[in-house]
Design a protein around this nucleic acid. Structure first.
Lengths: 363, 363
DNA sequence: TCTCGATCTGAAAACGATTTCAGCGTTAGG
DNA sequence: CCTAACGCTGAAATCGTTTTCAGATCGAGA
């Protein structure tokens, strides 16, 4: 009843059991205890067991700070994602953490909110913390960030992209090629009047930028280059998907296919289409990117590109674990994406000729 | 060209600049450099500036391991969430990290996959890493976990619930009361045949369990207790929401209101209802919990309970920062939830009496 | 019985920063 | 001009492990 009020304990109240205490109890030297912990195979089994028993008795755990100081390794990895709000990143981080945990590593997490300056600051803070490896997202980072990494001499890998500049290894998919394929698929279906909704407002979002380029390239190659007004820039919110579609159809009412660089945008677009009384895919085909859980459950189910987020996370973990250990590591890993054709895309309605207005202007 | 092949560097290649190097360059003692860094106000300004210049010149950063060893504080906090796949947790973690980062703390993240054993292991690993504070989710944790925390003497706070056992402080909402209110609202609308879909398969999911209890209590109080078959247990996936609704309506085709303990389940249920040709809310009212971004964008928009996830994350950060500093902290914080009435709920259709089959069986 | 190896184990020196304690120089007051 | 007091700075101890290096122990072979 007379314990301190609502004040949290100042320091550890019990003076922390250290390796020396265990050593004394077990009648061995601290060195032996350390060996039992770190190289169990080089100490005589009976002695090892005895020491182990005392370790458990005292429920001794080593001080990671001292350990890190002496050994120079923190057994810690950091990750900086743009945001956790996107399921695709959350999934990757979760897989990353799980794999690291299996190998005795712990994961520091930070988020940049798509802001390069913040990314730099967070990275600085992580490096000061002595992390052994770092996971980044995307290919575009400030050059000062790259020099910071280089100077720190910490292994790094960037994710969700197939390649990154500045000699940084990458694990991910070829975003541009994915949307190019998607666009070609829609072209094959017979579409000729396209629109694109891309979350490219954040300067650092090179994934969506690459995806947009894939769309543009495919359409240029088909002789149907996108006019600026056929491209709507958005952020990553559902609501922006809605307004983007509305804007797009205001400028180009005869559009038959809308390609979004994100499922979230596509879902927003679908919601808006429904509200506008447009039927998907009969009058409008819509496609997304990421294949989030909801995509398959939409009505109609969303045609999209499946991104192997968990595999990316696991791969990044493996890469860093090897790199830290000094094992050989691949330069970059390109993972396969998968086009998932569902019912939100279909051939354009053949009978209707809603293009009259556009056509008449041409001749 | 003759740099080592694909082998990562073994240790830091540059031998790391330490405090002594700075001291030598600046012609002062290491002690002074340390003081410049930690207590700038007690060192003569001109000298301080000189030292600072050399610190920058050499781009010296202190070794956090040594610092932590000597000072006993890691400036690090850990969080264990069930999963990051749920936006509600991702949002909280993001807010938590942002607030901690502002105060110079870094966040370790781990996930338990709703498994108490795993939660214990991850916590153990975090504590061994010397974290200064820990954030948990929910009220139900093994007693060995509680004793581990106590023994480590680390401040802890649990989140998303209004109170937790074992003297652990909490920050969150009163889940039971929220669903009770929601149920009462549906009762007032005139519903009498209810169904509940709850993600309670995970033993440790006390949030959903409390929510389910809220539903049951309200209905019991109204003299309409739920039969076991009116409660469908699920996990947290959209697909389970679908199959749960199907199962529920198979057993009780005359149901007019379905209360879900999660938006994800509710969205799945809505998708299934649409597929079954049932119109929401005309023949079936559906409600969720969490108010995820998508809830407002559904067709019809989903009636749900809004959970202040970001505020929970920030509050947890503030709590721990204060507790670690030894400042007074509140025992627990109950945050307000908010019932968000949208169009997925409405009075039951008065004219229709689809209950015939069920009724005939009764008499 | 003695010596040579082969194993294990212990003593002690790091790892890099923080902080106490004491000493130095300077200024103010007598 | 001398002493007291104050403000800064430096020397050195310390935090808890890991690891090198050497010493001890034991068995086997001569």
């Amino acid at each position: 009843m007379d314990k301190k009020p609502v004040i949290a304990p100042k320091g550890r109240q019990q003076p922390r059991v250290k390796i020396e205490d265990v050593a004394r109890k077990a009648n061995v030297s601290p060195a032996t205890v350390s060996r039992v912990l770190n190289h169990p195979d080089i100490v005589r089994p009976e002695l090892r067991d005895r020491v182990m028993r005392h370790i458990n008795d005292l429920s001794y755990t080593r001080d990671s700070a001292a350990r890190a100081l002496k050994s120079g390794r923190m057994r810690t990895v950091g990750v900086i994602v743009p945001t956790l709000a996107l399921g695709i990143f959350a999934e990757g981080v979760e897989a990353l953490q799980n794999r690291l945990s299996e190998s005795g590593y712990t994961l520091f997490i930070a988020n940049s909110q798509y802001d390069q300056r913040r990314e730099f600051q967070e990275l600085q803070s992580l490096i000061e913390r002595g992390i052994d490896g770092i996971v980044l997202v995307g290919a575009s980072h400030g050059r000062e960030l790259r020099s910071l990494i280089e100077q720190a001499g910490v292994p790094v890998i960037t994710t969700y992209v197939a390649k990154a500049g500045g000699g940084i290894p990458a694990i991910g998919i070829d975003n541009e090629s994915a949307t190019r394929e998607m666009t070609e698929y829609l072209l094959r279906l017979g579409h000729v009047r396209f629109g694109a909704i891309a979350n490219v407002v954040a300067a650092s979002n090179d994934r969506s930028r690459a995806r947009l380029e894939g769309i543009q390239r495919a359409l240029s190659d088909a002789g149907l280059p996108l006019k600026p007004t056929q491209i709507v820039k958005a952020d990553y919110s559902l609501a922006q998907g809605r307004s983007a579609l509305r804007g797009l159809l205001t400028d180009h009412p005869d559009t038959t296919a809308v390609i979004c660089t994100t499922d979230t945008l596509a879902i927003g677009a679908m919601a808006e289409a429904r509200k506008m009384g447009l039927s998907v895919p009969a009058t409008l085909s819509i496609t997304g990117f990421d294949d989030v859980e909801l995509a398959a459950q939409m009505d109609p189910p969303l045609t999209t590109v499946s991104v192997p987020a968990a595999e990316i996370g696991r791969g990044a973990a493996d890469y860093l674990i090897n790199a830290i250990a000094g094992s050989p590591v691949p330069r970059s890993v390109v993972l396969p994406y998968r086009l998932v054709m569902r019912s939100s895309s279909a051939p354009p309605r053949p009978s209707v000729r809603p293009a009259r207005r556009g056509r008449s202007r041409d001749h």
